[in-house]
Design a protein around this nucleic acid. Structure first.
Lengths: 342, 342
DNA sequence: CTGAAAGCGCTTACAG
DNA sequence: CTGAAAGCGCTTACAG
């Protein structure tokens, strides 16, 4: 047999001496075939290395078994890919189990300026989408809603009308509170915070969760410094900017690990001890923090769990054709991982 | 119009009052249509938000405009994803320009144990593959060759028979030599090397390139320590293991940045100065190295260039249906990025 | 339990 | 320049 030519169900039908309808049934696990023919067909399919032509199948079933993962536009920034490449791994594991392939995309094609998501949906290339997007336009939400297109918003929840939107995300308020509790139980009283811009909802919530719990338990937030990115150098620079306040605080909470590490660098340059003078806590529990001395206490979001639930929800949405009856806001509880920095 | 139903060329044909063959021609840029009809059809397509049904198109053209990126099995290891998530970004940019979508996969489905690549090829889900795989079995190579399936092996070249295999990879010998040259010009004479297992061809070549140039220019390699992974802790542990030799060397070359940083940590714990006592050079020029003090001198592989060439080669392979006439081994020259550690 | 037939939405050789 | 028709490889309602 010419191996370049793909084997189709017609080929198998010929060998098995049955109609290709029957072959289709056997290979699709239909009940409407005798055990004998099923065995025969399955054996031939195995031997010939048959695989369903995805296009043909997609054309008649309107299903591709592909889901699209829409990564943040700034994925090339180290602080972004640091978190999301781990996420990619977990999404992969979940989808492998559920027999879906993974297409990785971004909202817009930076070269043509075209909206890639609209294109993928219109072309029917994906059955559903996992959105990792902060600020999705109302137009996009409407576009997706009008078609009842299966989407799960992961990490960045969207609250808009009664569109039956499904969100899976980390409980950032709780995460902030965990940090506050830790500071308090270490006897810390006055905190400085490093955050990103207010439009980053996840960070804003971490801050809010922190502040309310910290103050509730007798702590005082001396200030919240904000930077445009969550990078190492941003953390460093914020501490430079807040240097005069450093002697009056005894703990520092940064909204992610990279900022915390940048802050740590500057704090030590100034001759202050961690955790003696300033206790430090980051966020994300990135693999990076283990390389550091002292080890950085951090909040783990349980990325694997978020990924798994996101995929499960999405598959369910796809299979039942709507988000009806599904919990619309699934929040995952984060966990504090204690190391030497606090 | 019900927005849930996708618009097809038949819908457009009806509105434009032409046959759907004509619509197809207009939308595909055929010459065989009058300017008037073309304009009319294009306008309607735009207004209705038409997009070709990818399955239908794929079924008749046997092309999906999807390429598969096959990531290394150990992508979940931090040292692996650190490099490859950058690569993913660059592959994305290149493919956006060339109008291909990107499917991310791994060699095997860890859940079912099934070979994902064979499946994707048999199902016709991808037009070509970018392989980032160290040890591909002969069976896989034959499977791909028998079908003349478009593949480009990136980073890990494959040399096997006259299969017309296309490799795009970094010149690791040259990279090692760059490091040797740098040490020599800094007056260093005796080196310790940290590498990974010998089956990692890329590392083996970096070492070989380093050793031959270093010795050629009067240096001496005091030893090459090897670890099972290229991780931070591996670098740290190797230095622990080679501690007795540390006083007799004046430079250290690690086969990637993470190992170099791990080594740096241990070297400093031992009270040795970098670069005063030991000059240190890593590899990959990872974003990480900038966070460090002293900054780590490192070799940049020009990942962006590798990604671009990989994609260009692959697209050409796909479009001309074979690798004929293509350069089979494209090597990219790396570059040394000098910082304080050497 | 099995087969013949229609249909999914395109492309493209063929006829005009 | 345009249209009618066949075909890509499947699924599935229908008839037996």
């Amino acid at each position: 047999m010419d191996r370049r030519k793909k084997v189709t169900i017609k080929d198998i039908a010929k060998i098995a001496q049955v109609s290709y309808s029957t072959v289709s049934r056997c290979l699709n696990g239909s009940e409407l075939v005798s055990e004998d023919t099923r065995q025969k067909v399955l054996k031939i399919a195995e031997e010939t290395g048959f695989g369903f032509n995805a296009s043909a199948r997609g054309l008649s079933t309107n299903r591709q078994n592909v889901i699209g993962l829409v990564l943040p536009e700034n994925y090339q920034d180290f602080n972004v890919s640091l978190y999301h490449s781990g996420l990619l791994t977990h999404v992969r594991s979940s989808l492998e189990r559920m027999n879906y392939d993974l297409m990785v995309t971004f909202l817009t094609n930076r070269y043509t300026g075209q909206n890639s998501i609209q294109r993928l949906v219109r072309e029917g290339k994906v059955d559903g989408l996992i959105m990792l997007q902060q600020n999705l336009s109302v137009e996009m939400l409407q576009f997706l809603y009008e078609r009842r297109f299966p989407v799960v918003f992961s990490h960045y929840p969207v609250h808009y009308q009664d569109y039956g939107i499904v969100n899976v995300y980390s409980d950032n308020l709780a995460g902030g509170a965990l940090v506050a509790d830790r500071f308090i139980s270490c006897g810390r009283k006055k905190a400085l915070c490093l955050s990103s811009l207010p439009e980053d909802i996840d960070c804003a919530q971490r801050m809010e969760g922190f502040r309310s719990r910290f103050e509730e338990r007798g702590g005082e937030v001396a200030g919240v410094l904000k930077a445009g990115s969550r990078s190492f150098s941003a953390g460093y620079e914020l501490v430079v900017r807040g240097e005069d306040r450093l002697r009056e605080i005894d703990c520092l909470f940064a909204v992610n690990d990279l900022m915390a590490l940048g802050a740590m660098k500057r704090i030590r340059e100034l001759g202050l001890g961690i955790p003696e003078d300033i206790a430090l806590v980051g966020y994300d529990d990135s693999p990076l923090v283990r390389f550091n001395t002292p080890g950085l206490t951090s909040v783990n979001q349980h990325q694997d769990e978020i990924a798994l639930l996101t995929c499960e929800k999405l598959i369910r949405f796809i299979e039942q054709g709507s988000s009806e009856g599904m919990e619309q806001n699934v929040q995952i509880k984060p966990e504090l991982v204690i190391r030497e920095s606090c």
